[in-house]
Every structure is written in structure tokens, then in C-alpha cells.
Computed example of a mutant assay.
Amino acid sequence: MENKTFMTVQEVADELGVSKSYAYKVVKQLNTEMQKLGYLTVNGRVNTQYFQKKLCYSE
């Protein structure tokens, strides 16, 4: 995975091996969690570090 700040829905789908429609749900859920923590989010993209943290790619 490249060192990018945000991942697109397609990148999430590819990384998880799921459909694009399911990846949209994952991105929306993660962005909702980030908004509750006070972060600004971008529709259709998710912060790469937060994605990796929530999916146990990093500590």
C-alpha cells in the first residue's frame, strides 16, 4: 500500500477483497466514527492511518 493520506473506496474494496458497494459502507462507518472524534472527513475517502488502525494493520 502506498503512503497516502486518504484511501478511495476502490482502494478499500481492493484491500479488503470486497465489493465496491460494501466498501462504501465501511468508509461511511469509519468516517462517522472519525466525525464523532472531532475530525473532518471527506466523503468517499477514508484516512489511511485510521483504516489501518481499525483493521488491525498497525497498533
Rank of each mutant, 00 (worst) to 15 (best):
K53R: 11
Y57S: 11
E11P: 11
S21C: 03
L30C: 02
Q35F: 05
Y50C: 08
A23W: 09
G17A: 11
M34N: 03
K28R: 07
F51M: 07
L16D: 05
Q52D: 15
Y24P: 01
E33W: 02
Y24M: 08
E15H: 13
A13M: 02
E59A: 08
F6D: 09
K25H: 06
V18I: 15
V42Q: 08
T5Y: 14
M1T: 14
K28I: 01
V42N: 02
L16Q: 10
G17Y: 11
V12R: 01
Q29P: 02
M34F: 02
T32D: 05
T48A: 14
G44E: 06
L40F: 06
T32Y: 01
V26A: 07
G44R: 00
E11D: 11
G17T: 10
Y57N: 13
E59M: 04
L40Q: 09
T41S: 04
N3M: 14
N47I: 05
V46Y: 01
Q49V: 13
V46G: 04
M1R: 14
V27F: 02
K54H: 07
Q49T: 15
A13Q: 09
G38A: 08
S19Q: 12
Y57L: 15
V42S: 00
V42R: 09
R45W: 11
A23D: 06
E15R: 12
N43D: 01
M1A: 15
Y22P: 07
K36Q: 06
N43W: 01
F6G: 08
L37R: 12
V18G: 08
V26F: 04
K20E: 11
F6S: 03
K28C: 04
A23L: 08
N31S: 05
C56L: 13
V9Y: 06
Q49H: 13
L40D: 09
Q49P: 01
Q52I: 04
K54M: 15
G17M: 10
K36R: 06
A23S: 12
Q49A: 15
E2V: 12
K4T: 14
L30F: 12
N43M: 04
C56R: 14
